[in-house]
Simulated assay, not measured.
Amino acid sequence: MRVVGTIGCATLAAAAMVPGFGSLSAASPDSIALNGMYRATSDGQWAKTNYAYHNEATVTSVWTISSACTDPMDCSGRVTSDQGWSAPLRLVGGNMWFVTHDVENWEQCGDGMPPAPGHQTFKFSADENLSGWDYTVGPSGACGANKWLVVEMPFKLVKIG
């Protein structure tokens, strides 16, 4: 029994030394919620198109975010972008925020084919960095190609107001 207790104490001591470990459980719900204006940047310099690096345009916008948390694991809210869209915001697992919305006419097709929509997901950390990924996928079969167009870019939010 003493050995198990020693291992348990060592595990807790090691966990206490890991930066950020357990920080959300000690945080108040108000400190986790995102509220205010943020600069949202999707860095096209490091974009991947269909999983291969391919330079894309960097996209910067301003998001107005309103959210509330009932506890450090249960947060939700709304993002309104100056690009003209609005979407739900949710915290998953206490450590990652998700925003998803559809982008009309996202994939431009040549040869007179109609443009295809894209489904865009922003996934970013709930820590002070607010960094993650902007991931957009078009439907298979769009533009006459039997595969999805996938564009993934590094993403970062910075509070501006």
Rank of each mutant, 00 (worst) to 15 (best):
R2D: 14
R2A: 12
V4F: 10
V4S: 05
G5T: 07
G5P: 09
T6G: 00
T6I: 13
T6F: 10
T6P: 00
A10Y: 15
T11N: 05
A13M: 10
A14G: 14
A14I: 13
M17N: 10
P19C: 08
P19A: 03
G20Y: 14
G20V: 05
G20M: 09
F21G: 15
F21H: 13
G22N: 09
S23H: 05
S23Q: 12
L24F: 03
S25R: 14
S25C: 04
A26F: 11
A26Y: 12
A27P: 04
A27S: 12
S28G: 14
P29V: 02
D30L: 04
L34G: 01
G36V: 02
G36N: 08
M37G: 01
R39M: 13
R39I: 10
R39G: 05
G44H: 09
Q45D: 10
W46G: 06
W46D: 11
A47H: 06
A47R: 08
K48V: 02
T49E: 12
T49D: 07
T49A: 15
N50D: 12
Y51A: 02
A52H: 06
H54C: 15
N55D: 08
E56S: 08
E56A: 07
E56Q: 11
E56V: 04
T58E: 12
V59N: 09
W63C: 01
T64L: 11
I65H: 01
S66G: 06
A68L: 08
A68V: 06
C69S: 10
T70L: 15
D71W: 14
P72T: 09
P72A: 15
D74Y: 11
C75W: 12
G77I: 00
G77F: 00
G77L: 00
V79P: 00
T80M: 05
S81H: 03
D82H: 01
G84N: 12
S86N: 13
S86D: 13
L89N: 07
V92H: 03
G93H: 14
G94L: 11
N95F: 11
W97K: 00
W97E: 04
F98N: 13
T100W: 03
H101I: 07
H101G: 06
D102M: 05
D102K: 03
V103T: 06
V103D: 08
V103R: 01
N105C: 06
W106L: 06
W106M: 06
W106Y: 12
E107H: 07
E107S: 03
E107D: 08
Q108R: 10
C109E: 08
C109D: 09
C109L: 05
G110I: 04
G110K: 07
D111F: 15
D111C: 05
M113A: 14
P114H: 06
P115G: 09
A116H: 05
Q120T: 11
K123H: 04
S125T: 11
D127L: 06
E128Q: 08
L130I: 00
L130P: 00
S131D: 14
G132R: 04
G132L: 02
W133Q: 07
W133C: 02
D134V: 02
T136G: 06
V137R: 07
V137Q: 07
G138L: 10
G141H: 09
G141C: 07
A142R: 01
A142D: 04
C143M: 12
A145C: 08
A145D: 08
N146T: 08
K147I: 06
K147M: 10
W148V: 02
E152G: 09
P154G: 02
K156P: 01
L157H: 08
I160G: 01
I160Q: 03
G161T: 02
